[in-house]
Design a protein around this nucleic acid. Structure first.
Lengths: 326, 326
DNA sequence: TTGTAAGCGTTATCAA
DNA sequence: TTGATAACGCTTACAA
């Protein structure tokens, strides 16, 4: 590996001069600059960022952390982050496992965007600090150096369920995600609140605990079909589970939406194709905004007010208007 | 940031002793080891991998590089890589932009898996070397330090087209991907070869140059529908374009497969749901295998024979049997 | 305008 | 079993 020293030797100058040339400092003569530059090119010199980072303690690199490979909207988030980062002369590294803690702890990166649920709050609280801001997606952490970017789940879920009620649906089932997640709690709360205001009864036996994966939606629907009477609408905490449920219904001759309406949350690619009524989360924008806040915080413009991204309902064919209503 | 020096000071030992403890060397007394360990924990010391990397020139980290966010199978590849890497005590960083060259050039990473087409062969040829092996996906580079992992396109595409011929299809259209890519060339070649052996005429006007994106398939189908007579089968070089074509046909009242059969390549998530006949590429395995070869090469077990992954055809509803055949 | 030298956090060599 | 010290590649006062 050719280093600054090699260049210096060949050019007959000192290492600091080479460094100054490479970094575009102006305290170097024109002829020297040109000579050094051409030698760098010739010998295909590439500055070693490890040495640089070690010295300066500043990497201009941010880290994005995720680890659930089932959910393809991650790519859109990454795309948003990547675009913002590129426009702001930062670098981005993405890390999928717990080992990414390593990249946070030393000055290889100067801030993180965290999506991975496996990364515990307490760990993040320890890592975040004056010169290591963090942006977390889909959860809220109360820490002066951690900014939360969350989807506003409550409003669209309320609107969705209210829409179902308005269309004449009365008997509901709910398939929830992992019970401890803020997302799921909020979506479920909105669901319950609307039913309550509408004086619609909801019994615990109609709640199914899933894990955001398709299979758990499938299973929930199978169980549902064993019960005396099917609800007339099944609200799911995300699309994957809704899709699983629809498949289960199809496999068993239960028609959607004639026999039962189904709704999701996320608006994943498949939702469109399957005609699933759902809530559209602007994922690219989510990534972009997260990167924006992170880099602003790195630059010292501190802002850790939780940010709520709004979402929009997509009414599609998995919901109709109840005949009794017509 | 707490470093090895701070620990040494508090523990009243030298930095080398701390280093030895942290790295589990055995040349250190039991009592010292325990004392140092507990102090490390107390002060939440985390070894700085930048310093370590600079010193040792060895990071045990590999890099994965991609940048096309439209194609969700990337997540599966990443998943495969991630799993292998994790099991082998390596770390993985993923990089999306050209800036990743930076992470290749210095010893931050000790090998790369490259999928991004924007990363030019000549650049890779320069970077690859004795102690920086590279694995490229979906292209073949002849270099003693670069291993190619490619999908065997020819065999399944031949089988697919032969299958169409056997089902009675005679008039074909083809929607190609980016013309310079090896993938596309191979798929097209298989297509032409089968037609030739079967004495089926194919005219250049029935070839449409796309870019692997859905929109280009849509456009191709629109153009196709302007022609005098529709072919009875449209073979597409990937799923995205096939899906675009199907949408165009649907939007214009052309029935699939009654009026025209459509096939893709990739077996993306949507393919299943849309009943698209296609070729299934084992993406998780692709990533896993790529990581495996890379790490073996890093360990000095050199092997740069191009590796061909086989793929399987999924016959679905977008193809039927031609009436005339029955 | 250019060069000298210290130091970033670590590991490795060698001596004690 | 321990410690002093050089070195990794780079930047940056400061000196020349």
């Amino acid at each position: 590996m050719v280093g600054i020293k090699d260049i210096a030797k060949v050019a007959g100058v000192s290492v600091s001069t080479v460094s100054n040339v490479v970094n575009g400092k102006k305290n170097v003569g024109e002829s020297t600059r040109e000579r050094v530059m051409s030698i760098c090119k010739e010998m295909s010199y590439y500055p070693n960022s490890v040495g640089k980072t070690l010295k300066t303690g500043n990497s201009n690199t941010i880290l994005f952390n995720f680890s659930d490979f089932d959910r393809s909207f991650f790519l859109k988030i990454i795309n948003g982050i990547s675009d913002y980062v590129k426009d702001n002369d930062f670098d981005l590294i993405i890390c999928t496992e717990k080992s990414c803690e390593k990249y946070m702890r030393n000055n290889l990166t100067c801030g993180s965007i965290v999506l991975d649920k496996k990364m515990k709050d307490e760990v993040l609280n320890k890592i975040a600090g004056e010169d290591y801001p963090i942006v977390v997606l889909d959860r809220v952490i109360d820490n002066p150096y951690i900014k939360s970017v969350v989807v506003n789940n409550y409003a669209p879920m309320s609107e969705l369920v209210q829409g179902l009620v308005d269309r004449g649906y009365r008997r509901f089932g709910f398939v929830g995600g992992p019970e401890h997640t803020a997302d799921n709690k909020e979506r479920y709360r909105a669901f319950r609140d609307v039913l309550e205001t509408s004086n619609i009864d909801f019994q615990q036996k109609s709640y199914f605990a899933g894990d955001y994966r398709e299979k758990s939606g499938y299973t929930a629907a199978k169980i549902l079909m064993l019960s005396q009477e099917l609800p007339d609408a099944l609200v799911c905490a995300n699309d994957n589970m809704a899709i699983g449920a629809i498949k289960a219904f199809q496999d068993n001759g239960v028609r959607v939406p004639e026999d039962i309406a189904v709704t999701g949350f996320d608006n994943c690619d498949l939702a469109d194709h399957m005609g699933l009524t759902t809530v559209s989360i602007p994922n690219y924008e989510r990534g972009y905004i997260a990167a924006q806040y992170l880099i602003e915080n790195i630059r010292g413009n501190r802002n850790v007010e939780p940010f709520k991204i709004s979402a929009k309902i997509k009414w599609r064919n998995s919901v109709s208007v109840k005949k009794s209503k017509i």
